[in-house]
Design a protein around this nucleic acid. Structure first.
Lengths: 138, 138
DNA sequence: CTTTACACTTGCAAATTGCAAGTAAATATA
DNA sequence: TATATTTACTTGCAATTTGCAAGTGTAAAG
């Protein structure tokens, strides 16, 4: 259990106390948009997260109630991470980050996804939240 | 000019390369929601940012084209920071952080603002973007 | 001509990150 | 049954970043 230092009572500041670093939201991205749910899968992303950082962030995310950890159905030596509702509620943040990055920075994004997000943000948010919930029930 | 290390071409990852830390978005928050525009004003926030961190982040934000720096109208020893359109476009991200923090963490928020954001997110985003633009023209 | 306001800069200890290697338990293979 | 592999971490350590306190430089005010 890692305790979190809250700098102020401001909701923005407090959100950043939890999510404000270069790695945490990438784990959530991988869960929501790539359907990943194990330690090994998280390590395979293009950004090459260090193993100790990943382990540390998973502990924080779990202690913050953003995801849960459970032994995998197929193997006892494997764990499955699932999003809680608090985790599912980060989808709008992630989607805004996608839109800002795609608009203002040199990035590569699937044109279909971009169009989907631009044409109806609310619909897209609900879709990816639903998918994330379904995945977390499996 | 601080060069930015881009970890991948993913728009989320790239957005986090720029905005993903505990301080940068607080500066933008202060500009959008508190109308702040000087070094001294940024230092007065509840989170007590260190002076060297603030100076460093302002250089990064400027070199990333998120804000501009200019000598103040009243004093030559004073600078005014203004948001560019790239900066104004972070408003949706900030608003999602407000909503997530207010919903899931122990925070204090003006009930009027929260209601405004919940009742019509798009309208609120446009309102605060317009206010930020007006401030940046002054 | 001294003081104040403002915007930084510097120095340094502490914390965090990034990299490589090692550990440990459960499974798969010979 | 013995050995190898998969999976999930842990450890050690150098390098970077942060946080705190103090100092610097310039313009305006008294």
């Amino acid at each position: 259990m890692k305790e979190l230092k809250q700098r102020s009572t401001c909701p923005i500041s407090t959100s950043l106390d939890v999510l404000g670093d270069k790695w945490t939201l990438l784990i959530l991205r991988d869960m929501v948009f790539a359907g990943k749910c194990t330690y090994g899968q998280f390590l395979q992303s293009a950004e090459k997260m260090a193993t100790n950082i990943l382990a540390d962030r998973l502990v924080i995310l779990e202690s913050q109630g953003i995801l849960t950890k459970a032994v995998a159905a197929d193997k006892k030596s494997k764990f499955t991470y699932r999003l809680t509702e608090k985790g599912v509620d980060t989808v709008p943040i992630i989607i805004e980050l996608i839109l800002w990055g795609a608009k203002h920075c040199p990035t590569v994004i699937d044109p279909g996804l971009l169009e989907e997000l631009q044409n109806g943000k609310d619909v897209a948010v609900e879709k990816y939240q639903r998918l994330a919930r379904e995945k977390s029930l499996a």
